[in-house]
Amino acid sequence: MPKVLIVDDAAFMRMRTSKLLMEAGYEVIQAENGLEAIQKYREARPDAVLLDITMPEMDGLTALKEIKAIDANAKVAMLTALGQQQIVLEAVKAGAKDFLVKPADAERVLAAVAKLCGR
């Protein structure tokens, strides 16, 4: 069962996405911020990461770079809100494989995660 790490400081979004992915047959790990995400990535080595951009403690872009430093092959999709185009572009340049603009519909989330996990 592919493992997906969901990183988002907004609990509601985290729960909604987790539920969606679990119903689709993924194992889900959650983190509330960038620091926690790095720690969980080290421990669990998930197949895919959904990484929010705006978070306290450590933002998504910094977390992305740290995760890529741990594992150059990490498969990360950024979660972005409207109007963060420049950060998303930077994230893609820094190795993010994909991105989802919030609020993303279920179909898009599942398609992106499936691609990241090579399904």
Partner: peptide
């Protein structure tokens, strides 16, 4: 697509 410009960049990548 909400951010087509970045998709285009991914194409370039």
């Amino acid at each position: 697509s909400p951010l087509p410009g970045i998709r285009c960049f991914q194409v370039l990548q």
